[in-house]
């Protein structure tokens, strides 16, 4: 019975082999090889076409169009388009508010990136050390949760938390015997308040990324280092940190891009829907926010496009610098 079955199976395999051979032979006879290759490519591009079309329509085209209009006087509501050369950029560079927004963005980024790296790496290390996989799963979930909530919704909650009179933030400060702060109503504390919200929202993602990076460090390396008398800090500094450098680099690039582009939380927390986002006294007017206001409040679309281009160039330069540093400092196995 079983032997018969197996015979059948072998038989059908043989047949399919024969079948394939016939097809190959037929193809070879009627079509030149190069034609087949071309056909294969056409099919491949044809299959890619829908995705490419979407990508082009919603990504490359707007990006290219943005560069185009930054050299024109262009308005969405009028058909008059006039080439103005670098005039938009000239206006921009003579705008104190533009420079102010870049400084604000830089300040925001310069605080956010180290804070992101150290907090998320710290939390990842704690999660890795302190919890068995089951409990760890709960905490990983808990940490990741904020990241999947809509930032506009949670930012509104943070507006409540930072309310100077009845918010949780000042309550905590009072509990710690620290002076209360004006938070979003203060020129100095509005941006830090936004930073806290952004960190809370984004850390989960970076913690997960760092956990993945840490799990790639072989446990035995750490054990050997321990046996060699290395204490915790030395193990971290000389073994873990260099070995997770690709992850750290990835997190730095990712968070640089997302901080320079930060918009929703700033807009929501500084009173966006009611107008006047970016205050008080422009202290939270970052580059991205200014682009939005220039385009959609003041309707200077070309100027906003020019501004975006500058923003793009800044991110590009930062990323190139990071790449150069990484080539020298990041250890890839």
């Amino acid at each position: 019975m079983t032997s018969l079955d197996s015979v059948k199976v072998i038989d059908s395999q043989d047949q399919s082999l024969v079948f394939e051979e016939v097809i190959v032979k037929k193809r070879k006879r009627f079509l030149p090889a190069s034609f087949n290759k071309i056909k294969e490519r056409l099919v491949a591009y044809g299959l890619m076409l829908p995705a490419l079309a979407v990508f082009f329509a919603f990504f490359y085209f707007p990006a290219l169009f943005l560069i185009y209009i930054s050299f024109f006087h262009w308005n969405i509501f009028s058909s008059q388009t006039k080439f103005v050369g670098l005039a938009n950029f000239k206006v921009l560079f003579n705008q104190p508010l533009f420079w102010h927004s870049i400084i604000t963005s830089a300040y925001y980024t310069l605080v956010m990136i180290p804070a992101t790296v150290f907090l998320s790496l710290g939390i990842a290390l704690l999660l890795k050390e302190g919890f068995t996989s089951r409990k760890g799963g709960f905490w990983r979930g808990a940490i990741f949760l904020p990241h999947v909530t809509p930032i506009v919704a949670t930012s509104i909650i943070w507006v409540w938390i930072f309310n100077p009179n009845f918010g949780l933030a000042n309550f905590v400060l009072k509990f710690l015997h620290l002076p209360a702060l004006g938070w979003l109503q203060s020129q100095h504390w509005a941006l830090p308040a936004v930073m806290i919200d952004s960190l809370w929202h984004s850390l989960g993602l970076y913690v997960i990324i760092f956990l993945a990076g840490l799990s790639n460090v072989p446990a035995q390396l750490i054990e050997v280092a321990r046996l060699e008398g290395a204490k915790k800090y030395r193990i971290f500094r000389r073994i873990i940190w260099p070995l997770i450098s690709p992850t750290t680099f990835f997190v730095v690039v990712l968070s640089t891009v997302s901080t320079w582009q930060a918009f929703s939380q700033i807009y929501t927390m500084t009173g966006g829907p009611h107008g006047g986002a970016g205050g008080p006294a422009f202290s939270t007017t970052t580059d991205a926010l200014l682009v939005y206001q220039t385009a959609f409040i003041y309707e200077h679309f070309s100027l906003a496009a020019a501004m975006s281009l500058v923003l793009f160039l800044i991110i590009l330069v930062l990323t190139i610098i990071q790449k150069i540093i990484s080539d020298r400092r990041v250890f890839y196995r």
């Binding site: 035995q220 390396l221 054990e223 050997v224 280092a225 046996l227 070995l243």
Partner: peptide
């Protein structure tokens, strides 16, 4: 103690 692991566990960097 000095220890040698099966996979050697040399510091790759």
């Amino acid at each position: 103690v000095g220890m040698v692991f099966q996979t050697y566990a040399l510091y790759p960097h």
